[in-house]
Design a protein around this nucleic acid. Structure first.
Lengths: 228, 228
DNA sequence: ACAATAGTGTCTATGAGACAATATGGT
DNA sequence: ACCATATTGTCTCATAGACACTATTGT
């Protein structure tokens, strides 16, 4: 009942996209104002939960997403919550971490203080707070689930070829997959539907597909063969 | 910085055990005092985060566990966080949900207001707050992970036979598994180590095993064949 | 000998992986 | 014709599942 002793509550969102054939994440610069912790450092976009504006945690995450990218509602998943006395110099705090998958055809200019970074280089920066750990957890969750789900499809434009989908898997996983096994796996599920169009180019045209559901991922029975 | 507008922060723990050949969960009765929400209803054990006593969220969950069962540190995993304006009549609140696996040989008398319930019957009770949803999520997480991890081993005594382990899987999953496939799967990993003892009985004695690690579960490459 | 459970073996089905062959567009 | 990529096919291998068989104790 009493106000005394309530932890600070924030939400941070790791927004992923495939840009320039690399898995990238959106980072923002911490403000420089007096009393601001980690001024000028790169951080995951986020901020305090606003109990007057946010109906729930997911609404708060969607609001951060909209403020930084203008995107409304792609795939969003809660990664977990980090809470403790030492993670924020302003006091005992909790942060609720989400990751979002932003489709390639809806990528607008990000907010002026925000910038896309390749995940590998982002993980070498010295991020604010414990955001290095949060980002690592989000990346690990994403990479792990990519082994047995259709999540990479949410990073593609509305219509895509199977080769493009395979390349998305390969850039996230950082290893190559076998073509025919990949195709049988994808087509064995209800994941995609062929559309009556083809991707033209200086070679054999490729069948275009769209997702059956732009919201719900598909879970496969097995993982891809692990690295090696 | 300002106190105004901070959400309430609680931790709730779904503590699971296998008792009487059933998956059971520990529930507590809500107190009857004036102003207490949901008086007398069953609920998951939990309560407010104490920023003076709890170093972090996991420490808070371990404290709840100790207060209700006397157990110190079995397997503990964060399920997720539920937060919103409407889930607690006292205001905008977040709850951090964990599930714990309590070994069968360490089950003491629970706290006086606590009682073990079979999960199936617990899910038919009208629990306090949104605890029905929290419990459902914890059960779903557990059942889902049991398909491809060694989690049921954390519910057994320190030494157990492969048949006992298989029965733990079967009671959690609610379906029977094939014996030889099960044994090959378990023995193909580093999960268990044989100890030089056998379980005697009115039949052929069984080899006893112990876990190689009492903390870290093993992940299998595939799930068990799904129901049917 | 019999009951009961532990432990093993054999066969089949499924799907992944490796790798090659074929198809179809542009130039 | 030739290049580049799409798409399909064939073979092998690993492992789960079904099911039956053998093993070892107590009574």
């Amino acid at each position: 009942m009493e106000i005394r002793g309530r932890p600070l509550a924030t939400v941070d969102v790791a927004m992923f996209a495939v840009r320039d054939s690399a898995l990238q994440v959106l980072l923002v610069r911490r403000p420089q104002g007096p009393g601001e912790p980690f001024p000028g450092r790169w951080a995951l976009p986020g901020g305090f939960v606003d109990v007057d504006r946010d109906a729930d945690l997911e609404a708060c995450a969607l609001r951060k997403l909209r403020e930084k990218t203008g995107i409304d509602a792609p795939y969003l998943e809660q990664v977990g919550t980090w809470g403790g006395a030492r993670r924020d110099p302003r006091g005992w705090s909790t942060t609720h971490v989400y990751f979002a998958l932003v489709p390639a055809d809806e990528l607008p200019q990000p907010a002026p203080d925000a910038q896309w970074h390749a995940v590998d280089t982002a993980q070498k920066l010295s991020l604010a707070f414990d955001h290095a750990a949060l980002l690592a957890a989000a990346v690990e969750r994403l990479r792990g689930k990519v082994e047995y789900t259709s999540l990479p499809a949410f990073l593609l434009p509305r219509e895509f070829t199977l080769s493009e989908l395979q390349r998305a898997y390969e850039t996230i996983l950082g290893r190559e997959l076998e073509k025919s096994a990949f195709r049988t796996r994808i087509l064995a599920t209800d994941l995609v539907v062929a559309v009556p169009r083809r991707r033209e180019g200086p070679n054999r045209p490729a069948q275009l597909y769209r997702l059956r559901s732009r919201r719900e991922p598909v879970f496969f029975q097995r993982t891809f063969k692990p690295a090696g």
